[in-house]
Every structure is written in C-alpha cells, then in structure tokens.
Write a protein that binds this DNA or RNA. Structure first.
Lengths: 354, 354
DNA sequence: CTTGACTTCCGAAACGTTTTGGGTAATAAT
DNA sequence: ATTATTACCCAAAACGTTTCGGAAGTCAAG
C-alpha cells in the first residue's frame, strides 16, 4: 500500500505538502497540487483510516448496537431495521458498523469499548429499556449517540432520541376496535422490560379508559416472546367462559400477531372482522403483514423516517460539537417533543383481520 | 480516555511492560501483571483500535459490501441476509461493517478504499456478476475476501466462494413440475447480468432438456426487477393463444413470484396446484413465502449455513496467512467443489402454489 | 569466581497521518 | 531602501499502540 511518504518522495516535496494538497488546503500551489494528485492516483493511494483516526479525525462510521435477545435470529423487525439503517447511512456517506451486544456480558464494557477504541464517530442505541443505564453511561463518557426508543421516566428525557409513539398507536387501535363494536379486548404483550412494549401496553390501557372500558387482568398476557408462549396464552384465553371471552385480540407486534392468528385457527376459531370472527391486530407492519390470511390490520412503523431522523440528529451532533440543536427537517408524522427529541406517529393500516 | 501511558505512570512501569502485560506475554511477572490489569480496569482503559491497527494488528472487523441496486430498498433478501450475517459475525466475535457500494461510482475505487484504509481485515463480496472485475482486483491487491456467489466462467474459479447452487435448484423445480404433469413452463428471470439469475436460468434450461422439453422463447422473460415489469410480462404471456399458454410459471426469486401471483389473479386466473390452476414457484424461501395465499412452493436458500461457511472460510484465511486451505467443517447440504469453494444445495419446499 | 541461562523489565523505533509553528522568497506598500 | 504582506513550503511533534533488541538482576552449574 502506498503511503504519503511514497508520494512525497516521488513528487519531491515534503509529506506535509502532500497531506495539505490532498486535503484541499489553500497554501499549496495549484500546480504542485495537480502533480501530487496525479501521483496519488497513479500509486493508488488511500489514506490509512487508522492513522487518520489516530489524529482525531472522523471515521465516518457509526455503530448500530442493538441488544442481542435470545431469539433475535427470528426477529424480523431487527432485520428490517438494520437493512433500512444501512441504506440511510449510505445516503449520508457513512459506513455502518453493526455490533450486536451480548446482554449476558457486561454491557457497559461493550459500549465503552465501542466508544473508547475510536472506531466510530457515534452510536445508534436501540432496544431501550424503561430505565437504561447505557444512556447515562454514554452521556457521562461524552460519546455522541441517539436512541431509537426512549426511557419511560418523563423526568430525564434529556438525551436525543427518536421513537415511534406506541402509546398513541395503541390508543388508535383500541379506538378503532371500539368503534367496530368490540367491548372485550385482550392484550398480548411483548417483553415488558422493553420500553416499546411498556408504552404500547400503556396506550392500550389509555384506550380502554377513554372509552370507559375496564381492564380484565385475565385478558392481558405480558412478556411473550416465543411462539409456544403465544399459543399457550391464546389457549388459556379461549378456556374462559364464553361470555367472558374477548372479541378482539390486540398483539403488541406483528410477530406476536402472527402466532396469535395461528393459535386462533388452531383453536377452531376464525380471524377476521366479521360478526362471528375474532379480530386480531398487530404493530409494525412488517412486509409479511400484508400477505397473511386474512391481511393483518396493524400499525405501520415508519422505519425509513425513523432512520432518517436518527441519522439527521446524529450527524447534526457530530458537526456541531457545541450544544446547538441540530436542524432536524420536518418529517411527515413527526411530533417534536424537545430540541433533540422526536416522536413519530404510527399509521393504522386497516386490512381484513380486524 | 485513558491511554497506555496513564497506566504506565500509575503503575510505575514502562509502557512496554503495560502493553505486554495486557497482551498476555510471558515475560512479565505475574504480580506486575495483576497490578497493571487492576489499574487498567480502574481507569476504564480500552486500547485504541486506530493505534492498534496502525501497528498492523487485526481490526476484528469484516466488511459486507453488497452492490446497491436501484431498488435495494425493496430487496427483502438483502435485509434477510444482512441480518443473518450480523448474527454470524457476532458468533465469531467479529464486527460487521456494512458498506453498500454505489455502482454509479467507480467500483474499483470503493473496494480499494475499503481494503486500503485498513478498517477491515477482510471482505465478503456479494452480488457477483458472470464476469466480475472486483474479484481480480482483490486478488491482485492481496486483500482477503470470500464471495457469496460465483462467476460463470468455469475456468477461473480460483478464489474462495460459497454459492447456493441455482442450477441444481431449478433443475429440481422443473423436475418437480414435470412430474406433476406440467409440460409448458414459463420462466421469469431476475436481472441476468447477475450470476445468480444466470445460473438459475441455466438450471431451468437443463431441467427442460433432461425431460426433452424445448424452450419456448415467448415464455422466457428476462431482467425483471420492478413489479410493473412482472405484471407486464404476465399479461403478455396470458395474451398468447390458449393452447400455447404455460401451465406453470417459474420465477427466479420469491420477490418475483410475489408479483407473479398478484398478476395472475389480476388476470382472472387462479394460482395453485389443481388442474385448472396455474402453478407458481419461487426461489429463496423468504419468511413471507409461507404466508402467501396460496403458500409458495419455493427453493430454500440456506442463508444461515451460507453465512457460516463464508465466515469460516474468511477467518480461516485470516488466521493462516500461508496458503493452507482453511478447515471448513462439513455442513448439511454442502458440496465441496474446491479447497475453498463450496456449493450449497437449496431445498425444495412444497406448499400449495405448485 | 566465571559463565550461561532465565526472568523481568525497558528505551526507542515504527506504523501513517495531521497539525503547529514556523521559514524563505517574492511581491506590494511605505 | 525598508517593511509588510503574501504565497508556498517544510521540520518536527503528536496521536496510542506494538515490537525489536537489549539490559540488569538472579540463580545454578562448572
């Protein structure tokens, strides 16, 4: 690999001049610059990223560091999000470092390493928990980051985040179902140690309240992750006395809804929006939601917009090291809840399942 | 951030000793080592990745560098593959740098940069073309890489690759359809400037030949990418005289099959394996294939196995800088076609669409 | 007492950049 | 003719590691 020295020697100038020529400084003669550039080209020169970042220069790389939950392999949302993120990074001329975080190891250590080794300029956090130590850690270390999702304490939301408003989303769903005549709703929740699940559940409760329905604890099942668990939950619900059974099953994610739909028909019932059918809703609007039979009524997560906003925020922070709020463009469905805090409203996609 | 100097000062030893202690060299007293480690811990020390790689050390990062085709945003396979790859890297204790390659720019330059800047130890190439300059480039530069996919010239397959055998796959499909009584098959191909599409088409032709069917050029449509194109192709096929219409539509990917299914029912025909129905098959077995109505009969790409094999190959090469072939464990459905060349046989998944 | 072999440590160079703080010569202003 | 100014260039330090080639001390063998 050619280095700056090789160029300097061949061009008969100092390495300083080469460096400054290549980086577009004004104190180098246009002719010398041309000459140097030509030689660099000829030698297939590319500056060593390592050497540059040792000088404190940007790496133009950001890390996406989701937690590795046990069953991430099956997590379609993770794959979808990562893909879109890669694309968004590309558009910002950034490289994306995907670094899954093993939660069985010391999480703090991992983030410290990610940040401390200087391989990335900033970090996109995800899988935020109601109380998340990582945020304070990064804040304390002064590492630029944005969170996809948010903690649940309303007091200390003093860090940059973009979140899809699960509360508003589930209120919408409940409202929709109520208007369709449903009065007994069951809720199947994902892991409640995650903020997103927590918020969605809260939205469900609020939805009930606003229509003066009361929560039936037997119809609320939390912390579902695996298909088997969803199956068991549905079976249990269907074993209730007929009058107490729900007419609608609200799932906290498309993934869950998928299993719910299976379980419902396994129990000899039919999913759909008709009178004798069981309504089922999801959350995410992953690609498969449209292809399910019946099509899944669900809330669409604006993944592309989310990634755009996250990156806009992050690169803004990287540019203005000072505390100026980055200029975040107005995006569709966006609610600004702070200078660097954004909520996106999920859109209800009505199909045949509810 | 704490550096090796800080530790050295605090421990009252030289930086050399600190470095060697931390890296487990034997020429440092066990007591001193403990002491140094304790201080490192206390100071939250992490070695600078930049400085290390400047010394020629590994970065423990590999790049996944797929080509950015115009509609990659819609490419479900890309997302699926990237997600699985991230997971596989995690298991190998590697970080994954996702670097989409803009084909409208100078591709050579991009790879050169990726390799030359020393940010990664190796590269996973994908979207291989029948004749692919990137391979010779990397070979020439001496950058460790493995290809997902392969070129079509059988002469120069002297680079490490893992490919899913599209030829064998489509032979299987044609055979399957033939046995079900189909005699007139249409083929809808993806972009033929890609090896994978090329191989699948070749497999289709071989399948025909082995059953002494002949290719009807009007039933073969190549280079399909967008949904509209698939629609148009189907419409055109259905405008043929009844006797000349196909009874089975073989698609080069699940993505295409999806559009094909839509188009078929839009033309008032029904997809399925029954006598008056049109059979449709795909390739990939993406998650949604199971949820389509009817379920898509398709070839399953063993993505996880593919990623495992790719990484096994790559890390093998990184370890043994010498030309020893890496020990690649025997994997299910694997055909070794060379010391560092592997084909994986896709499995036919029979559902209701054919 | 000398020699050789360990053990434990360290100084200095090297990796490839960027940046700081100049210097020199030519040109313009006084 | 002297002083500023400008245009162009460079030496050296700095970034944080690893590694090479010893060096000093200890200990056992000869």
């Amino acid at each position: 690999m050619a280095t700056i020295f090789d160029i300097a020697k061949k061009a008969g100038v100092s390495i300083t001049t080469v460096s400054r020529a290549l980086n577009g400084y004004s104190d180098v003669n246009e002719k010398t610059r041309q000459h140097i550039m030509a030689i660099a080209e000829e030698l297939n020169y590319y500056p060593s990223a390592a050497a540059r970042s040792l000088q404190g220069k940007k790496t133009n790389t950001i890390a996406f560091a989701p937690l590795l939950n046990q069953h991430v392999e099956a997590e379609p949302f993770f794959k979808e999000f990562t893909g879109v993120m890669a694309l968004a990074c590309f558009k910002h001329d950034l490289s994306l470092l995907v670094a899954l975080v093993d939660t069985t190891r010391n999480v703090e250590e991992i983030y410290r390493e990610l940040a401390g080794t200087g391989r990335v300029d900033g970090i996109v956090l995800s899988d935020i928990k109601p109380v998340d130590e990582r945020i304070n850690l990064l804040l304390r270390l002064g590492i630029p980051f944005v969170a996809f999702g948010r903690t649940t304490g309303y007091a200390d939301l003093n860090y940059p985040f973009v979140d899809v408003d699960g509360v508003a989303g589930l209120e919408t769903v409940v409202d929709y179902l109520y208007k369709k005549g449903h009065r007994r709703l069951a809720y199947l929740s994902g892991p409640l140690e995650m903020s997103y699940a927590f918020h969605r559940y809260e939205g469900f409760l609020r939805g009930l309240k606003s229509h003066e329905l009361h929560e039936d604890k037997r119809l609320v099942i939390g912390n579902l992750q695996l298909p088997e668990q969803a199956y068991a939950a549905i079976k249990q619900i269907f074993s209730l006395p007929a009058a107490e059974q729900p007419t609608a099953l609200v799932a906290g994610s498309d993934d869950l809804a998928l299993h719910v739909i299976q379980a419902v028909s396994d129990n000899g019932r039919e999913v759909g929006s008709g009178p004798d059918q069981i309504a089922v809703t999801g959350f995410d609007d992953l690609p498969f939601a449209a292809y399910l039979q019946p099509g899944l009524t669900t809330l669409r997560q604006p993944i592309t917009t989310t990634c755009t906003a996250l990156l806009e925020l992050l690169v803004g922070m990287l540019k203005n090291k000072d505390e100026l709020a980055p200029v975040l463009p107005e995006l569709p469905g966006m609610v600004r809840v702070g200078p660097k805090q954004v909520l996106l409203i999920p859109e209800l996609i009505c199909r045949e399942s509810a």
